[in-house]
Design a protein around this nucleic acid. Structure first.
Lengths: 217, 217
DNA sequence: CTTTGAAAAGTTACATGTAAATCCCTCTTG
DNA sequence: CAAGAGGGATTTACATGTAACTTTTCAAAG
C-alpha cells in the first residue's frame, strides 16, 4: 500500500494555478496559454489543459471555444447575487446544525466566539478573522449535509476571487455581534431563529455591497 | 463569420455521454473507459478524456486517481440532502421573482397554472409535467440572479440522475395545489409569503422522500 | 472447491505531433 | 494619422505514442 496517494501532475498544476489566481499573480483577464504555462511549470501540455478545464468549471477562468481561457473576474453585481445565494445557504446550514447538534457543538462555538470577542477587543485582526472563519466552518460541518457544504464552497471560491478587488466587511465589531446573535438562537435550540439570525448576518454584508454599488437604503 | 458556432468534438461527446447516462444506457457504476468510448464514438481519446472530466465535475461520474471513472448514483440519503438545498434555493428564486417582476410575469404564470390545472383534470400527465416545469422555469428566470439559476441547474442534474431509480412526487393534484399557493402569494406581491410557499412545496416533496427512506412523520 | 500468484490484457496519465484557427505585428493605403 | 490588409507566430483542439499501473485471467497449489 502507498503511504500517501501519489499526486497527479494535473492536481499539482491545478492547485498551483488556483494559488496564483488567488494571490493575484494571475490577474483577472490574464490569458491562460497552455503551451506557455506548460513550459513555465515544466510539464507537458496535457495536465495543463486538464487543470484549465477544471478552473473553468469552478469559474476561476472563462473560456471561449477556439480562443482559450482567461482568468475570471467577479463584478460587484455578481457578488451581490452570490451573497443572495449565500444568505439562504448559510441560513440552511445553521438551521440544520441546530437540528443535529448537541451540547458539544454549542460549547465549542461558545469557545470560538469568546476567542473572537477577545481578538476584536485586542484589535488582533488576524486572530479575529480566523475565529470568524472557524465559527462558520463549525456550523457548516455540523449541518451534516454534504450538498450545502459543497455549494458554500463554491460560493466561497467566488468570494475569494472577488476579494482581490472588493472589500466585504461591516467591521469586526458588527461581525462579532452577528455571531453572538446566531449563537444565542442556536444555544436556545431554536432552528428557525438560528436560520433567521444567520441570514441576517449575510444580508447585512450584502447590503454593504449594495451600498458600494451605489444603491443605498 | 460562422453561421453557427462550430461545435467541438468534446462538446458533442460530453452531450452524448450525458444523454446516455440519463437514458440509463450507461447505468450507475458503469466504467467509463476512455479507449473503449473513443472507439465506440469514433473519435480519439483526447475529447473523451475531457468530456469525462466534465462529467466528474458535474457529478454524473465519480473518479478515483489511476482507477478511472464510473457513472455516479444518487443515494436516497443524498437526494434528501439535495432537496434540503433545493428548498431554500427555490424559496430564494421565488422571493426574488416577486421583488423583480411585474404584472406580465403574474399573467404568464396564471396562464401556465391554468394549463397545469386543465392537464391534471384531463389526466394528461405529460402536459401536466410540462406545465409544472414551465412554472418553475419562469420563476427562476424572473429571479434575475444567474447564481441561483446555476445552482438550481446543478440540483436539477442530480435530481434527474436520481430519477432513474427513485420516484419523486406526491401526485399531480398536490403539485397543482402547491403551485396555486405559490402563485397566490406572488400575485399578492408578498415576497416573504411567496418564499415560504415555495419552500413548503419542496419540503413536501422532501418529506415523501424521507418516508421512502423509512423515516415517517 | 477455494486460494494464490504470475502473466496477459487493458487502462490511466503524461508527453508529443499537427492541421486549422486565431492573434499580433508590420507595412501599406486613403 | 487612422484603417486595414497581409503574413508570420502562436495557440487550440484533436490525434497518437508510451511507461507505469491496475485489473483480469487462468493455471497450479493447497
Amino acid at each position: 500500500m502507498t503511504v500517501a496517494s501519489d499526486p497527479r501532475v494535473t492536481d499539482r498544476v491545478h492547485q498551483e494555478l488556483r494559488d496564483q489566481i488567488f494571490a493575484g499573480e494571475l490577474p483577472a483577464g490574464a490569458r491562460l496559454s497552455v503551451p506557455a504555462l506548460a513550459a513555465s511549470l515544466g510539464v507537458s501540455r496535457s495536465p495543463v489543459r486538464e487543470a484549465i478545464v477544471r478552473l473553468v468549471h469552478e469559474r476561476l477562468a472563462r473560456e471561449e471555444p477556439r480562443r482559450g481561457a482567461v482568468v475570471a473576474d467577479v463584478s460587484l453585481k455578481s457578488l451581490i447575487a452570490i451573497y443572495e445565494v449565500r444568505e439562504v445557504l448559510e441560513g440552511l446550514a445553521t438551521r440544520l446544525a441546530v437540528e443535529n447538534a448537541g451540547r458539544r457543538l454549542i460549547r465549542t462555538l461558545e469557545d470560538v466566539l469568546g476567542e473572537h470577542e477577545r481578538a476584536v477587543a485586542a484589535v488582533d485582526l488576524t486572530a479575529a478573522s480566523e475565529a470568524d472563519m472557524t465559527f462558520h466552518r463549525l456550523i457548516r460541518e455540523a449541518a451534516d449535509n454534504p450538498e450545502v457544504v459543497r455549494m458554500l464552497d463554491e460560493v466561497q471560491t467566488q468570494v475569494r476571487l472577488a476579494m482581490r478587488t472588493t472589500q466585504v466587511t461591516r467591521g469586526p465589531k458588527l461581525a462579532v455581534a452577528d455571531h453572538r446573535a446566531i449563537f444565542t438562537a442556536m444555544a436556545a435550540g431554536d432552528p428557525a431563529a438560528a436560520e433567521q439570525a444567520a441570514r441576517a448576518h449575510i444580508a447585512g454584508l450584502r447590503s454593504t455591497l449594495a451600498e458600494q454599488a451605489g444603491e443605498p437604503r
